[in-house]
Design a protein around this nucleic acid. Structure first.
Lengths: 97, 97
DNA sequence: ATAGTTATATCGGTCATCCGATATATATAA
DNA sequence: TTATATATATCGGATGACCGATATAACTAT
């Protein structure tokens, strides 16, 4: 999710940001959507720390209702996603058919 | 580059495999192509171990000419790339405009 | 021959990602 | 109330990605 360096390590965060941008979701929904795409559900020990990072970076807002927390992009998160998406498309140009 | 798990950590290897599939290249060319796409050239300490992994996995053939080594996909590498590409597209469906 | 450049490669260390197991808190059911 | 399920969260440990520095080997000057 950074700018510089050759880092490909932010893909999970990027994917979460992208999914939430299409529709505000809570953690379970995010996990299910990733499972549908990847074929394997991320373990809680994978997903929630990633969400926490995005929250602490100011990219996600949370709205608690009972035990579920619905996440949505902040304006800063929207901006970060736009930048990250542009970068992603440039890096992987030609991979998509 | 694996099959199971929710691992997004093999993106560099995937990208190398994809680039080499379009045209056999040596390490320097791969680094330059990544630099063009990413905006930052991977350090040798990043690139060559990644190439080595792919070679040891049987996905890359090498042909030495003087000091340069040209890498090309093996049949097994082609197969792996096809699988990885299909998975990649499914995961990131909708990210590309 | 000697020096410099280029391509490939390894090493040490840091951090992110990931999983499985476990913990907490809320809601639902018996 | 007590048990069970659900959603969120943390912990320990493993591995991958990454950089900077350094090493080797082969060309290319001078």
């Amino acid at each position: 999710m950074d700018d510089e360096s050759c880092d490909m390590r932010g893909m999970l965060g990027f994917l979460i940001l992208f999914l939430v941008s299409k529709k505000p979701m809570h953690g379970k929904e995010i996990a299910d959507e990733i499972a549908k795409r990847k074929g394997e559900k991320p373990s809680p020990g994978t997903l929630y720390p990633a969400i926490k990072n995005l929250r602490e970076a100011g990219f996600l807002d949370e709205e608690k209702e009972g035990k579920t927390i619905t996440y949505a992009l902040t304006p800063s998160g929207k901006k970060a996603l736009t930048v990250a998406k542009r970068k992603f498309c440039k890096i992987f140009l030609g991979v998509f058919p």
